[in-house]
Each structure stands twice: as structure tokens, then as C-alpha cells.
């Protein structure tokens, strides 16, 4: 089943074409990584998938239904986490989870929160204000918020940015486990190539609003005769710049 399908998606801001007719799909239980240099159109693409930006043209299908920008019900099966978006700092972790659980109309919210607290190891700071937490703790709370509605589609924007290697590894391991157990589709935007190699089933390389290559991480490495995905990334980005 196609969880997300994007057809000839374009976005133009005045004279700037931020996204130039891209096509891709994410199937059930699949993780697609979106790679590209800053300003390549990743954030705009994610914004359009979340209903934050109206496309200039093209179509987005969520669960094989065309996305209707006037009806936000599709958002009840999606969620989003990014270190650049925070939860209210003055509220405790528990209060934040209660607020968002209510917002997503979660039944048996207490059980759901208990489960997330257990899975993401939040117990020791559950009643602490979110603003007083370390980056790693905040990241886990943000992840808990993004899983509060058992999303079928999860959009992650640099989920482990600014985390120490240990916490980063914890988050990646948790995501791998969660995906296996919950049949979830993930769109991952990241600059961490090891993370992309580890977590993704498929990789889209974007540059200047276009998809310049795609395939499995291993396939891309072999295809371009490089040792790592980072080398492939640098080759593709610099190659294009030379033209």
C-alpha cells in the first residue's frame, strides 16, 4: 500500500522555483530518506506534505486519497518531530503529553502515555518542565509527542541533530524497533549519512528543487563507485555545481 504518493509536485515562491515537479512514493513500513544541501527544497516538500504550504501544482496522496488542504483530518494519521520545533517549555513533560494526546483525541490516553514513558525512558523527568531538560531528553519527549497518536506516517526532520553519539544511537535504535513493531512509514530528512544508511529503505537526493538521484543507499554507493553515502552525496552535489 502506498502511504504517500507525490506526483509532479511544484512550489514557486514569487520568482523562485523551490520544488520543480518531483515524484516519489513511500510504501507501507518503508523509510524514505530525503537528502540534499540546504535550500534544496526538502523543508518545502515536508511543509507541503504536512499541509503547511500549498503547492503551486501537482498532487499528494496520503493513504491513496488525494490530500485536501481544506480538510486537515489526514493529519490525524501523521505526526512530525524536529529539533527545531519545540514543545511549550513551561509545561511539564506529562502536561505536554496530555495536551497533545487530547489534541489527537487519543482514547485511553493514560495508558498511551504510560507506554511512551516506559518505551522512551521518560519517567525520571516526567514532572519536570520541558525547558529544563537536556537536548537528549527534549529529543525523546519530542519523539514521544510525535508517536502519541500511533501515526501511520511519521515525518522526521533531522531527528538526531545536536545529540551526542550515545543518545543519537538510542533514538535510531528506538525508531528501528518502533517501525518494525508498528508498521509505520517514515520520511526522514537528515544530513547524517550514517543515520540515513542505517534507517532508510530508499534514498532521494535533492538539489535545487529536483530529484537528482534515488535508490537504496547501497545501490547508490555501488552505482557511483564510492565507499560511503556521504561521498555519493558530495559527488552528486559538486558534479551538478560544475555544470
Amino acid at each position: 500500500m502506498k502511504r504517500i504518493e507525490v506526483k509532479n509536485l511544484k512550489k514557486q515562491f514569487n520568482t523562485i522555483e523551490a520544488v520543480k515537479g518531483i515524484n516519489f512514493q513511500i510504501n507501507q513500513s518503508e523509510t524514505l530518506a530525503l537528502l540534499g544541501p540546504n535550500g534544496c527544497g526538502k523543508t518545502t516538500t515536508i511543509g507541503m506534505l504536512l499541509g503547511l504550504i500549498t503547492p503551486t501544482s501537482g498532487n499528494i496522496f496520503i493513504n491513496e486519497q488525494e490530500l485536501n488542504y481544506k480538510n486537515h483530518q489526514f493529519l490525524s494519521i501523521m505526526n512530525f518531530a524536529s529539533p527545531y520545533v519545540e514543545l511549550p517549555k513551561k509545561l511539564t513533560v506529562l502536561e505536554n503529553l496530555k495536551v497533545y494526546g487530547r489534541m489527537y483525541l487519543i482514547k485511553n490516553l493514560k495508558d498511551k502515555i504510560d507506554q511512551l514513558v516506559e518505551d522512551l525512558n521518560l519517567k525520571s523527568f516526567l514532572n519536570k518542565r520541558t525547558g529544563e531538560l537536556s537536548s537528549g531528553q527534549k529529543n525523546r519527549v519530542s519523539l514521544a509527542k510525535s508517536l502519541i497518536n500511533d501515526p501511520k506516517i511519521l515525518l522526521l526532520d533531522e531527528p538526531t541533530a545536536s545529540l551526542d553519539p550515545d543518545t543519537g544511537d538510542y533514538v535510531r535504535s528506538y525508531l528501528e524497533k518502533y517501525k518494525q513493531e508498528n508498521d509505520i512509514s517514515i520520511l526522514l530528512a537528515s544530513h547524517n549519512m550514517d543515520e540515513v544508511t542505517r534507517l532508510s529503505d530508499d534514498v532521494l537526493m535533492m538539489k535545487e528543487g529536483q530529484i537528482i538521484d534515488h535508490g537504496k543507499a547501497k545501490e547508490l554507493i555501488d552505482k557511483h563507485g564510492r565507499d560511503t553515502l556521504e561521498q555519493v552525496f558530495l559527488k552528486l552535489v559538486r558534479e551538478k555545481n560544475e555544470h
Binding site: 499541509g51 486537515h72 493529519l75 490525524s76 512530525f80 520545533v85 519545540e86 514543545l87 497533545y100 483525541l105
Partner: peptide
């Protein structure tokens, strides 16, 4: 509080 995006990506109308 940089929370506004969390609200806009929720099903809140």
C-alpha cells in the same frame, strides 16, 4: 515557545 508548528501539523481546525 516555538510550539506553533506542532499545532499546525496537528488535526486542530
Amino acid at each position: 515557545s516555538r510550539n506553533i508548528i506542532n499545532l499546525f501539523v496537528s488535526p486542530l481546525k
